[in-house]
Design a protein around this nucleic acid. Structure first.
Lengths: 112, 112
DNA sequence: CGCGAGTATATCGGTGTCCGATATAGCGAC
DNA sequence: GTCGCTATATCGGACACCGATATACTCGCG
């Protein structure tokens, strides 16, 4: 059953960046900063988005708590989380390829 | 004010493909088929998604009705819609580039 | 000593979107 | 005459995003 992976797709933009950040174990606050950096400032996740997403992702088994030192709770991707992330990257590549073709056409044709 | 464009971002996957399909004037039913084709079957938009999205997109000025022959209502991108679509393609390119780096690292490092 | 700024986690509620289910209706084929 | 395809449309549930808000610790500066 490959829909064990497909069931979680597509990922939204914030969720995608959160998983991307968690390829390296990080705690919540660090994820907020990493996402901003990864997206060149295009995506800013606030506390509401972050901790809501953490709950959902942990419940679904895509991430897991790996440490809890002082106030910092660190999370990391599970094997399933890695597979979902890679599958999403595949979807994005299709989207970009299609988009690139169309973009070229739009620019070439002009406003018509 | 560039947030005239940014206000509409990010686009969800179905909305992205709908706009992509409408770079060429099409009526609703044809959009459903085009989206499925563009996405290699990964995205299937049902009537609920499609006509709901049409209402929102037309209200926001990203698409416009260009013809209505028999039962077919054809829509096409506006200038704003084209700008939003191109901006979204830019976001996707950033996402894919970041994803590609991480994917390479994930595969190289293995399961650790 | 007090206060602002940064670190860090957490909850709540509004808003919007996706999407399945459902409905209508014309058309051609068998 | 009924099945399936074309074609448009509405409704409601479920879910996610995200701003506002709250708590609490630490550090530095005046």
């Amino acid at each position: 059953m490959a829909d064990r992976i497909a069931r979680h797709l597509p990922l939204t933009e914030p969720t995608y960046y959160i998983l991307l950040a968690l390829t390296e174990p990080l705690h919540g606050y660090a994820v907020m900063q990493k996402v901003e950096q990864l997206s060149h400032g295009a995506v800013i996740v606030g506390p509401g988005t972050l901790y809501g997403a953490f709950s959902t992702l942990e419940r679904d088994g895509l991430i897991v708590k790996v440490a809890e030192v002082e106030r910092r709770k660190s999370y990391a991707l599970t094997a399933l989380g890695r597979q979902v992330l890679l599958a999403q990257i595949g979807r994005l590549q299709v989207m970009v390829r299609r988009g690139g073709e169309v973009a070229a056409r739009l620019k070439a044709t002009g406003t018509r």
